[in-house]
Nucleic acid binder design. Structure first.
Lengths: 159, 159
DNA sequence: AGCAATTTAATTGTATACAATACTCTGGAA
DNA sequence: TTCCAGAGTATTGTATACAATTAAATTGCT
């Protein structure tokens, strides 16, 4: 074993991001409590408001979630009256997610609330853009490394 | 209802961070597969390698997790031989998390593996520091807004 | 000492995530 | 037409997260 450097939690970018993600999650979940939406439910609604109806698969592509997560989430959204789930008649394998009238009606209220929340954060568009650009770079690297199987199964495959 | 702007998923910093967090999670979980550690288990071990033994509460302070998450996670780490959970004799309310000999032995292997993973990401220290600094700012804002209860329960409490 | 308030973990219940599997449907090849 | 590989969704099983509650131990106050 060659000499190794200690790995300190507070120096890990992954933990910074993990922690920020949880805080954002909590922030929006609180802000959207009047609407009864969790954070994952909210981002699903965002995509649907942009582009409904969508199949489960299409929604999953945008959210980077699979049917294992989306099916129960969409059932809950359906029970709460935001969406309907209907088998496609042209392709019985697909389930189309439609917005309800309630969802269409409440869209602008949610948009407005989110706008107010963003104001509270006090970040400029420039700051947000800069951060998102950096995040895209990191995510691309993470995707590359995963796809190229640079992470082997055995400890010592990597020198 | 005043005029409102649409909220587009791809412009949301929260989603960028949420997505990056999941990718990091997957990245390290794959990298640590030879050790059988999940990402949350790994960051728990990082803290313990810095500072064991710790109470559940102390560990939770570092990780920003409560006993509802940590108790089952630590039971799994115990079952896999990384830690022991022992009631403190001086304060029977506390449970002290100790490292096992195996954990101590494997520490440097994990440290090394993580070092290799960080190399793969190809980010400079400067880039990482810059990003973490920005994240600290965002997180502080999120904490401030939450603590000051600027997020009310009713939609129209916020003008 | 006696007792209420607080602290600490564990438990319960709900909601993600995601790998792996099952199941149904579709489109094409023989 | 029949068969089958692949697509799309749902289900199962495991592991987080976290709010709310419970239970036990300790502290502080009288």
């Amino acid at each position: 074993m060659p000499k190794v450097s200690p790995v300190l939690l507070d120096e890990q970018l992954c933990f910074s991001i993990y922690s920020a993600s949880k805080k954002f999650n909590h922030f929006y979940q609180s802000a959207l409590a009047p609407f009864g939406l969790t954070y994952p439910q909210y981002i699903a609604m965002l995509v649907l408001w942009e582009d409904a109806p969508l199949t489960v698969h299409q929604l999953g592509d945008r959210l980077e979630l699979d049917s294992g997560t989306l099916t129960p989430l969409l059932k809950r959204l359906e029970k709460q009256g935001w969406v309907t789930r209907v088998r496609s008649r042209t392709d019985e394998r697909q389930v189309l997610i439609h917005l309800t009238d309630m969802a269409t009606t409440k869209r602008d209220e949610v948009y407005q609330r989110i706008g107010q929340c963003q104001t509270l954060l006090g970040m400029t568009n420039k700051e947000i853009d800069s951060m998102m650009t950096e995040l895209v770079t990191v995510k691309e690297q993470l995707d590359n490394v995963s796809n190229q199987r640079l992470i082997p199964k055995k400890v010592d495959d990597l020198v």
